[in-house]
């Protein structure tokens, strides 16, 4: 009888802590959803500097100015290259639709041709302008993909002294994994700000691929804003540092800044 009671007690004791963790930790999907509710402002202008460092330590720097604006739920983003001077004026425009089944519309203006070329946005896993982030990574910024992964919350950890939920995501299908370029993702999401602070990704073959760290998060004009993203590709040993400056959520940006014609007219 005693033995039976003891086994029962241990069993309850084993189950109870698990039950209490699952009660205190939100689900991975709810964390992903929550990152989309964060205030990002209606419009944003900023300077984005991309520092590309190869495995031999050679550094190339690309400076850009970008503008982003929400049109309802549709997000439009335009990026103008400032340097290198020989490609100054190169510009990239994207319309990101709220309907996940719709591909983004994207245009690239090439000053050497003086033409705006429509480009496919179907390959979300392609690398963005030579950096170590994919187009999908760039599009999400510090939010979490809501539709393509099955998430599991695996705990809480501190990143740079901030409490984060740790969630693991597996693509819902092989096709999605191939499209995104990841077979698994592990994400550290700030438990207070609902911003991604760190991510580890594995490639389609299951190899450890890259680490993304989001740093220097501070409030600008009342909105939590990151100022640095560090990305290391463990396969190629290539690194990218994104530095964000001159952030401005308040200056109004004209709607016609997000058109093909605006790419041609430049900054």
């Amino acid at each position: 009888m005693k033995t039976r009671f003891l086994i029962g007690f241990i069993a309850i004791g084993l189950v109870f802590p698990l039950h209490s963790i699952s009660q205190t930790l939100p689900s991975g999907q709810s964390i992903a959803n929550k990152t989309h509710t964060r205030d990002e402002g209606v419009s944003l202008s900023r300077k984005l500097t991309m520092e590309l460092k190869d495995k031999r330590g050679k550094i190339r720097i690309r400076e850009t100015t970008s503008f982003r604006k929400y049109f309802g739920e549709e997000k439009r983003l335009v990026i103008f290259y400032l340097t290198p001077k020989s490609v100054m004026g190169t510009a990239f425009l994207t319309y990101d639709y709220p309907d996940a089944s719709l591909d983004d519309d994207q245009w690239l203006y090439m000053p050497a041709l003086r033409k705006t070329r429509r480009i496919s946005a179907a390959n979300r896993g392609d690398y963005f302008l030579g950096t170590d982030l994919t187009y999908e990574d760039i599009k999400l910024e510090t939010r979490i993909n809501r539709d393509d992964y099955t998430y599991k919350t695996i705990g809480k950890e501190q990143v740079d002294g901030h409490e984060c939920f740790v969630i693991e995501g597996l693509p819902k299908s092989k096709e999605i994994a191939k499209e995104l370029g990841y077979s698994k993702t592990k994400l550290w999401v700030d438990a207070t700000l609902w911003m991604l602070r760190k991510a580890d990704n594995w490639d389609v073959a299951g190899n450890y691929l890259k680490t993304i760290e989001i740093k220097d998060i501070k409030k600008i004009q009342g909105i939590w804003t990151y100022h640095k993203i560090y990305v290391k590709n463990h396969k190629t040993n290539h690194e990218t540092i994104f530095r964000i400056d001159e952030v401005d959520y308040q200056t109004e940006i004209n709607d016609d800044a997000f058109t093909k014609e605006a790419l041609v007219n430049g900054l």
């Binding site: 429509r118 946005a121 179907a122």
Partner: peptide, 11 residues
């Protein structure tokens, strides 16, 4: 004219 179909742009 141009339109994107999947990974291809038709122009």
């Amino acid at each position: 004219f141009n339109k994107v179909f999947g990974s291809s742009t038709f122009r």
